[in-house]
């Protein structure tokens, strides 16, 4: 099994890792230490103290709150999206591209969907305006609850102590 340095994992997150190392990461069995290094790197990239335990997006993490140890979803800017078992999107801002004019803002004519069939739903952080997700469903489609991790089992897999309130 390969091992990587924290610097290499940090470069991976930044998108600057050299291709030889990326290729090694792709072709060799996965390195068990990745999770630990990744969490350290992510933690250094945010200004809050809550402990990051899983990443949901480039600016969205599942964290153990330093206030009350609750497990919540948090934007890099500090905005809290609620308990990790609930869909964070319900606490976001949404902008729906549901007509020709709004679609023209993102794709040239004929290269965007027909909004009678499909709309684009953009989910923004209410505090910093980061776009955390874009959905492309039909009208009427329920908001997708993308991922619901089983944290208890995850920490068993990692053979690491789990946060108290999972």
């Amino acid at each position: 099994m390969s091992t990587y340095t924290k610097k290499q994992v940090s470069d991976l997150v930044k998108g600057t890792l050299d291709w030889d190392t990326v290729h090694l990461m792709l072709s060799m069995p996965k390195d068990e230490a990745r999770y630990k290094l990744y969490m350290e790197v992510l933690q250094e990239n945010v200004s809050y103290d809550d402990k990051i335990i899983l990443a949901v997006g480039p600016h969205l993490n599942i964290v153990e709150s330093s206030k009350d140890q609750e497990i919540i979803i948090k934007c890099d800017c500090g905005h809290e999206f609620g308990h990790y078992s609930k869909n964070w999107k319900l606490n976001a801002l949404i902008y729906v591209r549901d007509n020709v004019e709004k679609m023209k803002e993102v794709y040239p004519e004929l290269m965007a969907p027909d909004t009678n069939w499909q709309v684009y739903r953009e989910y923004y952080c209410p505090s910093c305006g980061i776009m955390h997700d874009v959905e492309a469903p039909t009208p009427w489609y329920p908001v997708m609850h993308d991922i619901q991790p089983d944290l208890k089992t995850f920490f068993e897999w990692l053979d690491m102590p789990a946060p108290a309130k999972i």
Partner: peptide, 19 residues
Amino acid sequence: GYMNSDWGLMGGYPSATGY
């Protein structure tokens, strides 16, 4: 063409649709 079968991921956009 009228729809795109792909979404983007984590804030990325779907690709252009067909015509």
